[in-house]
Simulated assay, not measured.
Amino acid sequence: MLYRPIAVFDSGLGSLSVVRELRKIVPSENILYFADKKNFPYGNKTKSELKSIMLKSINFLEKYQPKLIVMASNTPSVQIYDEIKNNFSTAIISTKLPLDKTISLSRKKHIAIMASKGTLDSKEFNYLIKKEIPQQIFVDKVDSSEIINLVESGSFLFDQKFTSDKIREIIESNIDDTIDVIALGSTHLPFVKNYIEDILPSIKFINSSAEVAKDVKSYLKYTGDLDKNKNSKGKLEILVSADKKNFQSILRYMGIKEIIFDVSLQM
């Protein structure tokens, strides 16, 4: 068992985009990465189902005595986080939609948010939009569930033409040249950012995975719990709740060599 890791979880590969950002900015920290593939995708779950999954996952991860737990998925972060954040002895960090930064970078006052259907359709998301985005800013919502599925399945690695064509179809149906900034409201989307940038080269993208990694570092600094040993490299441990064989093949293709532990019987 890793010593006091940062625990990071979502329904699969999305967490990995957060893990990558954490390894850049807090390289000495141990990281426990839990891919809850048993419950993929979070984006089509009811709020009640999501709450149950979050409670179960966090209770499970607390057994590893982490410094904190990162809810590395935008869907439960938007819908569930506020309800459960005080239910645990361990601090929980959510993956917020990076709205402030997206708004501040827009010169055309027209932005888009790419996210799962579950996030975009939730009353919590729409309340957030009304609360945090000024009325003079136009917001387009882009259902990116199909793109998220392409990432989770590994198609973005193994079938690049199909991935490019599908992303182009979704982008061209929803985004025009009046938009100048897009928030990537799913931790799966950074893996296909290069595809999206090729289609929309003049648009700026805000990555929620990078933003939550900054939140983690700030929290650890604030609590005095940040590992400052520049000579040590943190270890990575990977857990998966289902479909280990396919998940492992994707990670190996991506160059990730750590042992992957199947925890399906513990969930």
Rank of each mutant, 00 (worst) to 15 (best):
S164H: 13
F125Y: 12
G185N: 13
A7P: 09
F9G: 08
P41W: 13
G14L: 09
F156V: 01
S145D: 04
Q136I: 08
D176H: 08
Q248K: 11
L157C: 04
D177I: 06
S52I: 09
L105A: 00
F9V: 10
L236H: 09
E237R: 05
N87V: 00
S145T: 13
M114G: 05
D262A: 08
S264L: 07
S15C: 07
L239F: 15
A242P: 00
D262E: 12
K37M: 08
K38Y: 11
M54P: 08
S122E: 02
K85E: 01
F247T: 10
I111P: 02
N74D: 03
I199C: 06
S144N: 08
L50R: 13
Y195P: 07
T46K: 12
N174C: 14
K230Q: 15
N174T: 11
V240S: 02
H110C: 14
S153Y: 14
D165R: 05
M114P: 05
I113L: 11
K130P: 00
A35R: 03
Q248Y: 07
A35D: 03
K45T: 05
E21G: 06
L184M: 15
D121F: 05
V142R: 03
M1P: 03
F125H: 09
S249G: 02
Y222L: 14
N30I: 13
K141D: 01
E172V: 08
E49P: 05
I170T: 09
L50P: 13
K38C: 04
S116V: 02
V263S: 03
S122H: 01
A213T: 10
N246M: 09
N194A: 11
R23V: 08
S122C: 02
T187H: 09
S264R: 01
T187Y: 07
V212Q: 10
N231Q: 14
L265T: 11
M54E: 10
N59A: 04
Q136D: 12
V139A: 11
I129L: 15
G12R: 03
S145M: 06
E172R: 13
F9M: 09
M54Q: 10
D180H: 08
S11L: 01
E132P: 02
N229C: 13
R168S: 11
L13I: 12
L220T: 04
I238A: 04
I182T: 03
L251M: 13
N194K: 15
D227Y: 07
V216C: 13
G12M: 05
L150T: 02
Y195T: 02
P5H: 05
E83L: 14
S218F: 10
D177W: 09
D140M: 07
D227G: 06
S153R: 15
D227M: 10
T119N: 01
K221D: 15
E62G: 01
G224M: 11
N86K: 07
L99E: 00
V8W: 00
I6T: 06
K24Q: 02
D227R: 15
V216D: 12
L99S: 00
Y253R: 14
L200K: 12
I92A: 12
Y81P: 05
